[in-house]
Design a protein around this nucleic acid. Sequence first.
RNA 1: GCGCCGAUAGUGUAGUGGUUAUCACUAGGCGUUGCCAACGCCUAAACCCGGGUUCGAGUCCCGGUCGGCGCACCA
Length: 583
Amino acid sequence: MEEISSSVILMSDVFENVMELARRRGFIWPTSECYGAVAGFIDYGPLGAMMKRRIENIWRDFYVIREGYYEIECPTIAQEAVFIASGHVAGFADKMCQCPHCKEYLRADHVAEGGGIQNASTMKNEDLASVLATCKCLACEEVLGNVEVFGFNLMFRTTIGPGSQRVGYLRPETAQGMFVDFSRLLRFYRDKLPFGAVQIGKSYRNEISPRQGMIRLREFTQAEAEIFVHPDEKNKHPRFSRYANYGMPLLTYVQQQKGGEAVTMTMQEAVEKGVIANQYLAYYVALTHEMLVSIGIKPERLRFRQHLPDERAHYATDCWDAEIRSDRFGWVETVGLADRTDYDLNAHAKESGTPMTVFIQYAEPRKVPRRRIVPNMGVLGKQYRDKAKTIFAALAESIPEKGGVDVEVDGEIIHIPPDLYEVKDEIVDIRGEDIVPHVVEPSYGIDRMCYAVLEQAYDEDEADGEKRTVMRFSPKVAPVQVAVFPLMTRDGLDTIADTITKSLHKKGLLAEYDDSGAIGRRYRRQDEIGTPFAVTVDYDTKENNTVTLRDRDSMKQVRIAIDKLPETLSALVEGDVKFGELG
RNA sequence: GCGCCGAUAGUGUAGUGGUUAUCACUAGGCGUUGCCAACGCCUAAACCCGGGUUCGAGUCCCGGUCGGCGCACCA
């Protein structure tokens, strides 16, 4: 029992310890600290920015290089129309009111529903305020009385340009950029489905109460992919075989309703059993798992949770979250995978008036009978003048009978005799159809991934009876990749170490030279920032051109020839070779 | 936003309303040192911000900011 409670204390300390280290060693800082920080904003320090960049680049390896979905970069500010279409102007706004007694801010529609009032969320602010007068505050249970209802929108609003006061918003997600560029993207991909576009960038949400360190920020980095696919081909991912037998823990909504645990199954099974809606979604669920593991997330701390039916956004048919278990915060939603259907493209097509469809050509043209009603323009035009245009349109829609056709124009019935039009029955070739693609969207919270990597890398062990703090980063994400030390700052050892450092730089490795203090202290410094490998130049180096190469995790050393260093270290950092395989 | 708690060198801290604000680690310099936070000397470095009470505030009071927790919020 005592052991359990002490380990619980140790666990909760991980957050404190890792954030303290992150501040001290230059990973994460409060923003503009000299003026007093601002909640919901953080600065990435030198090492944090480097680590974040490495994580983003691994993401690019998966989505851009391997999947072939090019990256685009759109502004973080967009005009109002974009977010009217996306639904964020209306849907991202909550109706709020403040209790005059306890000063608590409340969701006005929740209060009204608590008071038994229907359709509160669709009422006008003034009407809602008047019905709220008799409702009780959800916090202090006093009757509200006279309250004001106001909208609180989670988007940051701004104006564009000096005179016009044209309204703009900071984007609450990067996704809309890919949707509004749909027509351009379609042309770029030469009018063929499926294709995808991705974007890594900042998004902004004016959270009411940002908390939990870097978990809920007002400005955050997203990596989003929008994959456009034919609605009938969501079960035909061209590379599905890659992940068909890839297994992982899935917590379905059915399991959640039963209070059950995640069940491990392969993607093939998941799709066949209807657990995951389609192959496309399953493919990116698996890819996400692989990607998160590759940046150093432990598989046992990773699960995929399906949204409950009432939790899903209005547009999504099936939605899964990759959740990473944090010692401090429990399961943290880090990646959202949604089938957004054709919701977004339809919305932008309607708002902008630009069709957002793909022409799908049939294998064979289809012969389709068509009846056309061709009016005698010359006679009808002269006879009806300004009404003629309306009559032509009505005629085209009509079903003529033997005696002619009656069309209604401005409430007036006009009889058109059969000699004033011709009915043409013909067979036409239909070569294809316009369809609105569906969108499968993996959306990654980069800051949350960074936090998870930091938390999971944090470790303490013992070296020679002393506590050692070590960040066990995967070499792929470690900010500094190699440290180079001269054992002594004399006899030319420092010059050799300096030359080695430069040769590693030339290979693209971030190598840091350090000759300050005792050698043990230098190792510890690098352990604390998670540098996976250290090279030490000693007196044997002068004899035989070899150095020691030290592994962060095991603290073991091997001797290696100087001219093999750049190649060997590159392979170690990439993960192509393990330290244990050297020697 | 509400409630509770907190804020002192880079980090962790001590500090009955009254000296030049304590200690350790860290960092920088010099020396020493033949592979894991060694040692010696020297140096740098702090009372979150704004009001108030007081002869005098790091300390007491009020407001703000930031952080933690609970509630609410999180298309």
